[in-house]
Structures are given as structure tokens and as C-alpha cells.
Simulated scan of single mutants.
Amino acid sequence: MTTLNVGDTHAWINRFAAQAEDQFDALTDLDRLVGDGDFGMNLRSGLRGAVRRIDLDPPSDPGGIFARVSDAFLDTGGTSGPLLGLWFGRIGAITGDSVTAADFASALTAATSAVQRLGNAQVGHKTMVDAMVPAADALSDAAASGSTVFAALDAAAGAAQRGAQSTRSMLARRGRATYVGEHARGVEDPGAAAIAMFFSAAQREGDPA
């Protein structure tokens, strides 16, 4: 498939929500080491809310799906809720029934820039931005080469995963992890891990990239 439609997007968010349920304990444990331990709960709560909103009032296009996710996270507590709400809201600015790789790349770049401005975070600060920026760059590169949207999202997933893994060696410069200093080294940032999870959920099992 060359473009992303509303059904694809709905299934993607459902897979992401299922992964958040499966990884709840792992994300909570990571956040206990570098934060206040509520990230797994906030991610799960936001995605449960998103699934309910989508099911109660099904959108007619992919942008509408991401807008519902945004609304759910904006109603979720913690530091991550507003940031993820902003990110998904900007992605939700996508218009049209069929989203191309170029469409998604443009929206993702704008969304990531908005999060960076709000959080004053850069790559290397040990935050979710360490997964967001590589994913946006990889998706843009794939789109520019003429890739389908799913091939581009697959490239983004790999870049996000590498970005998340890179946070293990970092000393935090933003967020609650700054409070624990050197104790955060060796621990993957839970926000970055969640972003990598989001992109990994885009690829359907058995689908060609």
C-alpha cells in the first residue's frame, strides 16, 4: 500500500495502545529510575482514552485519528501528557483521506519542532526528542527518495529505536532525570522508548515495507 488511510491509522493506534499495555511495567520501571514513576501510567491512560474517543466518534480521515489521540493526551496528567498532546495534534493537522510519505514527513517534522520549542530540548538531552528527531529525519529522507508511506514509517521506526537506545549513555539535561544525575546513565529514557514503540506499531505484520 502506498498511502495511509483512516483504517490503517485506526489499526496503528490500536496496536500502539496494545503495546503500551504490554510494556506498562517496563516503562514504569524505567521512569522510576529516572523520573517519578508515572510515565507508564500516563501513556497507558492517554492511549486508553484515545481508543475510547475514536471508537465513540470514528473520524473519517487519518488526521482525525491523530487529533483524537492528541485530545486524550492533553487530558492526561504528568509532564508527558502536554508534550504528546502537542505532538499528536501537529501530526493531526494532516488533511485528506490518503496520506503519502511526503504528507506524513511534513507533519512529523512540524510536530517534532513544536515539541522541541515547548520543552526546550535537543538531541542529546535524554528525552523523547532523541527518538522524535531521528524518526522525522529518516521519514523525510525516505519520502524524498520516493518510498511508500509504510516503507518510510519503517525507516522512521528503525531510527527512533536507535535514538531511544542512544539515551542509555546520556546524562540528562532536561526533565526529571536531571535530578538523579549520573544515576540516569545506563537507563533508556522512557519517553524515547514510547516514541520508538509508536513507530514500530505502524508496520503491520506480514506487510512489505
Rank of each mutant, 00 (worst) to 15 (best):
A131I: 00
G206V: 07
A177P: 09
D31C: 02
M132H: 00
I54K: 01
G92M: 15
T127D: 08
R168T: 06
S147L: 06
A26H: 12
A155P: 03
R204P: 07
G63L: 01
Q165L: 10
L4N: 14
S140I: 09
P134D: 00
A184S: 15
A202W: 01
V187M: 02
D29N: 09
V180S: 11
N120L: 07
A194F: 01
G35E: 06
F104C: 04
L47Q: 07
F150K: 06
S106N: 09
M41H: 07
D61R: 08
M132P: 00
F198K: 03
V6R: 07
S80R: 08
R168L: 05
F66Y: 14
L27C: 05
F66L: 15
A192H: 01
R173N: 08
G37D: 10
P58G: 01
R32M: 14
I91S: 02
S98C: 09
G119K: 01
A26K: 12
S106W: 01
D29P: 05
V129A: 01
L74D: 01
D8F: 09
R173G: 10
F150Y: 06
G146L: 10
L84K: 04
T112V: 09
A152Y: 01
L30V: 04
T148Y: 02
L43I: 15
A152S: 10
R168E: 11
L4M: 15
R90Y: 11
A138M: 04
A72T: 01
V123H: 06
S145P: 04
S140F: 07
A93G: 11
R173P: 06
G64L: 10
E182F: 11
T79R: 04
V123M: 05
A157N: 03
G7S: 12
F150I: 07
A157P: 11
F39Y: 10
D38W: 00
F16R: 03
D25A: 15
R162L: 13
L47T: 04
F198N: 06
R52A: 14
F24D: 12
R173D: 06
G64P: 11
V149Y: 00
I54F: 02
R52Y: 09
T167K: 04
T95E: 15
S140W: 09
V115C: 05
S113K: 14
P208C: 10
R185D: 12
G146S: 06
L153M: 15
R176D: 07
A142I: 09
G89F: 08
N42Q: 11
V180L: 15
D103T: 06
I13L: 12
Q23L: 13
L153R: 00
